[in-house]
Amino acid sequence: MSVFRYRLNRVRLRLIIWETAMNKKRPIHLALHLIKLPLSGLVSILHRVSGLLLFLALPLLLFALQYSLRSIETYTQLLTALHYPCSKLLLLVLLWAFLHHFCAGLRYLAIDLDYGVELATARVTAKWVFVVSGVATFILGVWLW
């Protein structure tokens, strides 16, 4: 994106927020496509995306738990189903979602306890969230395949 368009978008975004604030229309709805995020902002939005993914996957996860416990037959069926490449791929996506949500969540809990609030530290911990969840997803992915 050109610098000019970026600046223009920033101005439009501020205008939208200002207009909303002036009209006292709440809650404020954000214009997602106009926002350019810093690293900790990326952690934050992916925290939402991964959380939503995990929510949508809840019925699948409950089915898996049910099949793993109900009987030896359903347990074997579940293991067979998990061997398909597409279910492995889905599992990997959900693993990433879980790990990112977990790491980012721990970071927020720390911030709530006043650890890592300063900008420099917050940037470092944001980086760590990506590193730890990325590496863990990779290792588990290799182990899965």
Binding site: R48, G51, L52, L54, F55, L58
Partner: peptide
């Protein structure tokens, strides 16, 4: 999940 989805 409820609180999270609601906020989003």
């Amino acid at each position: 999940a409820w609180i999270g989805v609601r906020d989003v």
